[in-house]
Structures are given as structure tokens and as C-alpha cells.
């Protein structure tokens, strides 16, 4: 390897990562600020975290969000894995171009369009809006992310492993559950986590498709931040960031260990 890591490279990396992380760090630091004025440092305090714990509306929203995200992630993983299978394995079939179009388009489609169109569909179908409609909406776009993540793993999957399973007496279903699924499991788990965070994160689509009693955390945060900066929101953000960070680092460490173990030989 003759790659040269120059001063220029180091400097651009330093600035870029500072740009990426400084705002988040500042946000976290000010969540421990005594003062209500977020930009004036008035000493260390954890009082905003305490207030958060007593904010029943916030806690309710968090519980709704969790249930939505969990159901969404599970549904999206099932549908997305099926879709990945279709993309990678089904070869040519009538309407394939449309299908792959519908998988890739939601990845970049503006949220407002997805949200508005789904809401109008629910109204046209006379479906009462609530948690269920948010779950359907989130599943629709999250399954596309899952499909992309899983299909990239399936492409490099050695098909003779499935053939070997069939050859040794498995039905196609058994071959999937005994051989394919355990091997692609890391990507399926990654897909689930991605779907979970996407659902956890979404404001726009949830705002369109939600109904009474189904206020999610981002909707709650949104109505708070539109009124300006509030240390309580900083505290909430800090908690969410910590959870995600710990989760992502743990997931990737496990993955790296697996990779390292797989690399012990050849």
C-alpha cells in the first residue's frame, strides 16, 4: 500500500469531522446548562433531565413512538427481505422494472409527497387515522431501505449453499430458514435497526398520517422547537443520541468481532 496520508488530508478530515460533530457536542453540553437561556452557560445541572421525566406528554409520545417503530421495523424487515429476494433472485418477470422502481424511488422521494399521498389514500379508503396508519406509512418507505440492505448481501450470497441444502433433503422453505436466513442474518438485523431508527426519526410522514392519540416523539419535539430553543429538548436529544450511539457502536463491534473471527484463517 503506497497511499500517502498528507497534511492536506489530515486537515480536511479534521475540519469535516468538526463540522459533523461540533453541533451535536454543543447540543449535549447545553443540555447540562443550569440556565433556561440555552446559549448562556450558567453552571452544570441535570435538572432538565429531571423535568423531562415528569413530562407525561413527552413520555406518552415516547411510548407511542417506540411501539410504532418496533412494529414498523418488524413488518418492514419481513416485506423488505421478501422484496430483496424478488430483486436478486426472481430474474425477469412481468412488471419487474416497475417493482424495482418502487423499491428505489422511496429512498429519495421527498417526505412531504409520501406523507400527503398516503394521507389522501387513507381518507379515500375511509381508514381512521392513528397508530395503524403511521405504521403502514412508515413500513412502506422503511421496507425499501431494508430491501436495499438485504439485497446487497444476497447478491454476494453463494447460491450453491441453497442448492446444497435442497440436495441434502430440505424443502425450499427449510433451506431458507436453516441456511439462507442464518447466513444473511447480520444484514437482516441491520435492516431491522435501520427501519427502527427511520421510523423513530420521522416527522413529516408521521405528521400527515397520524391521528388522535398517536402523537409521536418527533411531532412533540417539533411543536416544542418551533417555539425556540429549550434545554429540555436538548436533554431529550442527548438521551436519544446516546441510545443510538451505544446501539450503533455495539452492533458494529459485534460485527467486527465476527469478521475478525471469520478472518482467523484464509
Amino acid at each position: 500500500m503506497t497511499r500517502k496520508f498528507t497534511w492536506f488530508n489530515a486537515t480536511s478530515l479534521t475540519f469535516a469531522f468538526a463540522f459533523l460533530y461540533l453541533p451535536i457536542l454543543i447540543l449535549i453540553v447545553y443540555s447540562f446548562n443550569e440556565s433556561k437561556l440555552v446559549t448562556v452557560w450558567a453552571g452544570f445541572s441535570t435538572k432538565w433531565y429531571g423535568e423531562l421525566l415528569h413530562n407525561q406528554a413527552m413520555l406518552d409520545a415516547a411510548w407511542v413512538t417506540f411501539r410504532v417503530a418496533f412494529t414498523t421495523a418488524t413488518l418492514a424487515t419481513i416485506l423488505g427481505t421478501m422484496a430483496a429476494y424478488v430483486l436478486v433472485r426472481s430474474g425477469r418477470f412481468y412488471g419487474r422494472t416497475l417493482f424495482s422502481g418502487m423499491i428505489y424511488a422511496p429512498l429519495v422521494m421527498p417526505d412531504v409527497i409520501i406523507g400527503l399521498s398516503l394521507l389522501l389514500l387513507f381518507i379515500a379508503m375511509n381508514i381512521d387515522r392513528g397508530m395503524m396508519t403511521v405504521i403502514i406509512a412508515h413500513t412502506t418507505f422503511a421496507m425499501c431501505y431494508v430491501a436495499v440492505v438485504v439485497s446487497s448481501r444476497l447478491i454476494s450470497f453463494d447460491r450453491s449453499l441453497e442448492e446444497a441444502a435442497l440436495d441434502l433433503g430440505c424443502s425450499p422453505m427449510e433451506a431458507f430458514f436453516y441456511v439462507t436466513l442464518p447466513i444473511i442474518a447480520p444484514s437482516v438485523v441491520a435492516g431491522w435497526l435501520l427501519a427502527f431508527t427511520l421510523s423513530l426519526d420521522d416527522l413529516v410522514i408521521a405528521s400527515f398520517t397520524t391521528g388522535p392519540g398517536a402523537t409521536t416523539l418527533p411531532i412533540k419535539i417539533w411543536s416544542a422547537v418551533r417555539l425556540g430553543v429549550s434545554p429540555e429538548i436538548n436533554a431529550l436529544s442527548t438521551i436519544l443520541i446516546s441510545i443510538v450511539t451505544v446501539g450503533v457502536i455495539a452492533a458494529s463491534t459485534i460485527d467486527r468481532r465476527r469478521a475478525a473471527r471469520a478472518g482467523e484463517r484464509g
Binding site: S160, E163, A165, D167, L168, C170
Partner: peptide
């Protein structure tokens, strides 16, 4: 007749050993 119903077994070019199973479980799989 589908492959799983044939009294015929195959040894694959890539060996197609199941990476998530150890040697014993690979042999016992069928």
C-alpha cells in the same frame, strides 16, 4: 422430481459448506 426428493447427492465445486455450522453439523445436516 425436485432435488430434495431425489436419492442423489452432490458435492459442489465451491464445496458449499454451510459457514454458520461446524464440521459435524455440516455432515449431519442432510
Amino acid at each position: 422430481v425436485p432435488p430434495n426428493r431425489r436419492p442423489v447427492n452432490m458435492m459442489f465445486q465451491s464445496y458449499a459448506l454451510f459457514p454458520h455450522l461446524n464440521v459435524r453439523d455440516n455432515i449431519a445436516f442432510g
